[in-house]
Simulated assay, not measured.
Amino acid sequence: MNRLITRVVFSLSLIFIFTITATAQGDTVSVQTEQKTSQTDVAETDSTATDTVMTAFAEAPEDYATATDNGGLYKSIKVKFIEGNVGFMSLVALALIIGLTFCIERIIYLSLSEINTRKLLEDIEAKIMDGDVDGAKSICRETRGPVASICYQGLMRTDEPMENIERSIVSYGSVQSANLEKGCTWITLCIAIAPSLGFLGTVVGMVMAFEQIQTAGDISPTIVAAGMKVALITTIFGIIAALILQVFYNYILTKIEHITTQMEEAAISLLDIIMKSRQAR
């Protein structure tokens, strides 16, 4: 079930990001075509063609952004996506999508793992005190989550010494704890990768700025600003992606701690119930 959820969410996310990337690349080609046309017209009508063309090239994305401001949030994000270099922005978006996929899968799994522990233990105690151990096992089998699984493991050894029961519960509890944390490593990896890709885009943008300065043979604020804009946009998106994933990751850790606490309390309560039932005999 968990693998199915992960695959579905991941597939839909990839389709979404590929659609945005393809659209962005198409828009980039259109903008570049408009830039070339603008550069040709300027070169024919102005004696200072080089400086004017570089200025038009740097300002063209801003004009494109202004033209699409009325398109809403989606248009604005797409414009910034194009301005930040489609290649690096796609990698950052992919890291965000992969991280969110694992976050959603973990949240669904942990939400389904939470139960009313107090009611479960009360039902188990009532069955055990009545001598109906099989009925208590049935309750655990019909209840989802690691808490019920731990209780079932303890009830499987009610006729054995208390040390064996405790050892079995502790061992199985370690397995369940590992299942709760499954996939969290990938989330932390995406949290680290997203800003790193943004910083890499920053370095590439600065290199582009210096290349434009070298080509123009002059240090123009407009030329430097164009390259720095690309650099800063990739950094911003990388940091935003990492912040989003960090919020989800902390929420997941909180739910894992809560379920782990429930498991420990249930284990202690189950041992007390078994001890009471033996004393009652």
Rank of each mutant, 00 (worst) to 15 (best):
I5F: 11
I5Q: 07
V9H: 04
L12T: 07
S13G: 15
F16R: 03
A24Y: 08
Q25T: 05
S30L: 11
V31T: 01
Q32F: 09
K36M: 06
D41I: 12
D46C: 05
T48F: 10
D51T: 11
T55W: 06
A58N: 05
A60T: 13
P61M: 00
E62R: 08
A67M: 08
T68P: 05
G72Y: 11
L73N: 07
V79S: 13
K80P: 00
E83W: 00
G87R: 04
F88D: 08
S90G: 01
V92T: 14
A93F: 13
I98E: 02
T101I: 03
R106W: 05
Y109G: 07
S111K: 13
S113Y: 03
S113C: 09
E114W: 04
E122P: 02
A126C: 02
I128T: 14
G131E: 04
D132F: 05
K137G: 02
K137I: 06
C140T: 07
R141E: 13
E142H: 04
V147D: 02
I150P: 01
M156S: 14
R157C: 05
E163T: 09
E163R: 07
V170Y: 09
S174A: 06
V175S: 06
Q176G: 06
A178K: 09
I191P: 06
S196D: 00
L197P: 04
L200H: 00
G201P: 09
Q212N: 14
I213F: 13
T215A: 15
A216F: 12
D218Y: 13
I223L: 11
M228Y: 03
K229P: 00
A231T: 07
I233V: 09
I236F: 12
I244T: 14
L245D: 01
V247S: 08
I252V: 08
T254H: 14
Q262D: 14
E265W: 07
A267E: 14
L270M: 08
L271H: 05
I273R: 08
K276R: 13
Q279L: 15
A280Y: 08
